[in-house]
């Protein structure tokens, strides 16, 4: 464990809590893409199946349960509890175009071909594009509430910090995982235009307006 991965996990946890808190407090999921949240739940479910087969540390196990529980709780709030506020018209990204290619790629490019490892690889590829429905929705509505942009900033920062963690681990342990690194770079690049808008606008108190 290193400071980059620790702060990355913290940013990830903060993002999830910001979103859950926002939906719970405002009793509304307006502006939130339920599809991205479904993809995240799928990412954690397929990645954390190893909870039953291997033990890394109490921290690792605890965080996996937290990510699983919060992602399903978020889906419950969006699709059940506050489904009247779910914005169907703007949350229209075809997620099958993200799931199927990720699965196909995981079957082709993986570290070794067995059930858990292919699912882990699938979750890595899917996570790199899971935010697209949310970014697509923000671009369709042309704006995002500031709290949603804080959520996106924290979520984007988590994988950017993981890149620093991978550099650190390669430098100190000689350990690297090319699949996670390439997907992580793609994932972070997808946030770049958002990061630019966030830093130039939201931090100056303006609303996040995306060129529609």
């Amino acid at each position: 464990m290193n400071i980059f991965r620790l702060t990355g996990d913290l940013a990830h946890l903060i993002a999830i809590i910001i979103l859950l808190h926002k939906i719970w407090k405002s009793r509304s999921c307006a502006g939130i893409s339920g599809k991205s949240q479904v993809l995240f739940a799928l990412v954690y479910t397929t990645r954390y199946l190893d909870l039953v087969t291997s033990y890394v540390s109490i921290y690792n196990t605890f965080m996996k349960f937290v990510f699983l529980a919060t992602s399903y709780a978020t889906i419950y709030l969006i699709y059940v509890k506050f489904k009247a506020t779910y914005d169907h018209n703007h949350d229209t990204f075809r997620i099958e175009f993200l799931i199927l290619p990720s699965l196909a790629l995981a079957l082709l490019i993986n570290h070794y071909f067995n059930f858990l490892e292919v699912l882990w690889t699938f979750s890595i590829y899917l996570e790199s594009v899971a935010i697209l429905p949310q970014l697509f929705m923000v671009s369709k509505t042309g704006e995002a509430e500031s709290i949603t942009s804080h959520y996106l900033f924290a979520l984007g920062s988590y994988r950017a910090l993981y890149i620093l963690n991978w550099i650190y681990r390669y430098a100190t342990e000689g350990h690297y995982d090319l699949i996670a690194i390439v997907a992580g770079v793609v994932q972070t690049v997808l946030y770049c235009d958002f990061f630019y808008l966030y830093i130039t606008k939201v931090l100056k108190g303006k609303k996040l307006q995306l060129p529609a």
């Binding site: 991965r5 996990d9 990830h12 990645r47 190893d50 291997s54 890394v56 540390s57 690792n60 965080m63 996996k64 990510f67 570290h111 070794y112 882990w120 993981y162 963690n165 995982d177 996670a180």
Partner: peptide, 10 residues
């Protein structure tokens, strides 16, 4: 990538 290497990252 050794067969037994488990993924230790979240």
């Amino acid at each position: 990538f050794s067969n037994m290497e488990l993924h230790d990252e979240l």
